[in-house]
Design a protein around this nucleic acid. Sequence first.
DNA 1: GTGACAATGGACCGGAAGGTACATTCACCG
DNA 2: CGGTGAATGTACCTTCCGGTCCATTGTCAC
Lengths: 203, 203
Amino acid sequence: MLTRKGAATRRRIIDAAAAEIRARGVTATTLDDICRRSGTGKSQLFHYFPDGKEQLLLAVAQWEADRVIEDQQPHLEQLTSWTEWQEWRDAVVARYRQQGVHCPLGVLITEVGRHTPAAQAVTRQLLEQWQRHIRTGIERMRESGEISRDIDPVRTAGALIAAIQGGVTILMSTGSAEHLESALDLCIDYLRTGTPAHTSSVV
Amino acid sequence: MLTRKGAATRRRIIDAAAAEIRARGVTATTLDDICRRSGTGKSQLFHYFPDGKEQLLLAVAQWEADRVIEDQQPHLEQLTSWTEWQEWRDAVVARYRQQGVHCPLGVLITEVGRHTPAAQAVTRQLLEQWQRHIRTGIERMRESGEISRDIDPVRTAGALIAAIQGGVTILMSTGSAEHLESALDLCIDYLRTGTPAHTSSVV
DNA sequence: GTGACAATGGACCGGAAGGTACATTCACCG
DNA sequence: CGGTGAATGTACCTTCCGGTCCATTGTCAC
């Protein structure tokens, strides 16, 4: 069971953990840090996350994954014109540029992720959801004739996800968003150029 | 000073550390593990790496970075025909597919990397070197007329690096190389058919 | 208001991991 | 050889951190 107060505490712990991880990385974050920041004690932490750190990290990973999609809305569901694609692109770049060298999710994945099936599931779910949105966008544009029939929506959406992921990783380690921008631009350009030549461009 | 025997031991320690990290990740790898695998004691480890774990991890990161480029040779220096581009693509995919869920360098970067300047330098150097090779390849193809003048070698090379990086990251967490392949194919396709969006296409 | 169960505080534990001290053995140079 | 500094083995230390225990306080349903 879980009283209202309990639920609030649980949430505070996740928030604190996420913040701490964003600030200092998974490895450097200790349970004591999280307790201090959330104003709780370890007894509470283990009360709400009986399996300890791993369970908590998983909850944080899920929370961060939700944010990834959330932060791209409403753009991600409105990829029906080139203007909107461009707005989405700008939103992505802005989001990660602001986030700077922190990639909470990426860090969680590399550190918690690969070995435990539960964490892999979080990743997979995020990737699928993300890619599905983009694929849908491409398909709509295809139907309206703005993207060539020759373009494979699934593969292209996959490439876009990879491009963003890589751009963000590089942004994390160099601090520069150039790669992210180039990669996104290239992919979008690819989508446009495939356009049957003469329905062409509104810029 | 460093006798021949000493140099060999030092190398053995780096090898053991790299292997251990590949097998179990940075976090799970302890100095004792490394010593056990390399058949040395901690006194030796600290003899050759007085600054301890951090210094050793940095050495491993450098070693892994060297491998990245090395494993793509000679392809990376011979990007002068579409056949060779394709061969390079296949080599990259094969290399990372074989490597599977391990991305030693990526892990090192996310865990050691971002906060220490020395580790950032390793990353930057690798990215620059890699991108320079690709850029050179694009420029040669441009000169021989096989790639359009409208393509910006620097930005496109950057996008390619990002695409690979992202594809590998996804490969790491899902075990599937699909994204990596799609991303690479898209970029190469872009180079081949590449006329940026606003020029009317003469193919 | 009272009883049952959730929520909390705080002290405590055990072990692991990075790092040190020091004595001993070995490699190289004259 | 013989000596000097490098190379190595062993035992130890200290700190930190995930996790436990238990007593106390609060919540909520009846």
